[in-house]
Amino acid sequence: MPDSPARRLVVAITGATGAVYGVRLVQQLAATQGIETHLIVSDAAVLTLHQELGMQRREVEALAHVVHKNRDVGASIASGSFQSDGMVIAPCSMKTLAAVALGLSDNLIARAADVVLKERRRLVLMVRETPFNLAHLRNMTAVTEMGGVIFPPLPSFYHKPESIDAMVDHTVGRVMDLFGVAHTLAPRWAGMKAASDAQPDT
């Protein structure tokens, strides 16, 4: 039998704004040795990819090792016997969040997420919406209580990003940290560097 990869990660891209996070994550994983990526792109995500990035489905799918159709609920990743390190939904729409929170499993993205939760693996949802209503907050609470990680892709500014790409890379790097995947996407926090002339209030 052929040697299996050391690690597998499932990545799903839904129709929420922020398609760049999913694309950048898949690009980085593809360039990381020993990681096999399994990708699902929803129909709504195809529209967002074109609107925000000018990309076609086939361009994004070409970045992954294995591609699954969202309607294929019989795919390998729909079973707990499929070994993986977990799953990232980047970005995660409120519809997909609700499906995961309620265990609907009505498409492959929701089913694969359900499998990751039931097998006690890591599930990261990069939820995209603002402001949140009560249903959103309750669904995020439910997923957290089931062991999932709610990870809104909020930019940080302490590293003084000079571009949108730098902000995206920093966030994607933090997600990769959650799976213990090495990267050099952004500088690490080394502590507060106060100005030399700054004095505490007395």
Rank of each mutant, 00 (worst) to 15 (best):
A186I: 08
L63N: 00
N133H: 15
W189H: 07
S93D: 07
L53T: 00
F151Y: 12
V127Q: 11
S76F: 08
L25R: 04
R8I: 02
E162V: 09
I164V: 14
A113Y: 07
A75P: 02
R24I: 13
A195I: 05
L25D: 01
D114S: 13
P5M: 05
R57K: 14
G18A: 04
V124G: 00
D43T: 09
N70C: 11
L49W: 03
M167R: 00
A6Q: 08
V46R: 14
L117R: 06
A64N: 01
T171H: 06
V88I: 15
P2Y: 09
V172D: 00
L47Q: 11
G180C: 12
V60D: 08
P91R: 08
G148N: 11
A78R: 04
G80A: 06
D165Q: 10
D169N: 15
I35F: 09
P2Q: 13
D43Y: 06
E119M: 06
A75T: 07
D169V: 12
K118E: 13
S79H: 05
V23A: 07
V175R: 01
V172Y: 02
I109G: 10
G191P: 04
P5Y: 03
M87W: 03
V149M: 12
R188H: 02
G22P: 04
V116A: 14
H65V: 07
R122D: 05
R138I: 01
P155H: 03
Q51R: 15
V11W: 01
M1Y: 07
A44P: 05
V41Y: 02
V60R: 10
A110V: 10
H38V: 08
S196A: 15
H159S: 15
V143W: 06
L123P: 10
E36R: 09
Q199I: 11
V67K: 04
V73I: 14
L137W: 06
A19R: 00
R71P: 08
V127F: 09
V60G: 09
A31L: 08
H50F: 06
E61M: 09
E145L: 11
L53S: 04
V67Y: 10
A198H: 10
L123E: 10
L154A: 14
V46W: 08
L47A: 14
D3V: 14
N70A: 15
A135L: 13
V172A: 04
L178T: 03
V10P: 05
A30T: 00
L117I: 11
L137T: 11
H50Y: 06
V60S: 09
E119A: 06
N139Y: 02
S76P: 03
D177V: 12
A30Y: 05
T202H: 10
A30E: 07
M192K: 10
A78I: 08
R174N: 11
F132M: 15
G148K: 07
T48W: 07
L29D: 09
F151E: 10
P153I: 04
T48N: 01
D165F: 03
T141M: 15
F179H: 03
V181P: 00
L178V: 08
M87N: 05
A186T: 14
G173P: 00
H65C: 05
L9C: 02
V67D: 02
E162G: 15
S156Y: 04
M167Y: 06
E129N: 00
D72Q: 11
K193L: 13
R122H: 13
D177L: 13
G173K: 00
G74A: 14
V115N: 07
L29A: 08
V41K: 01
L53D: 02
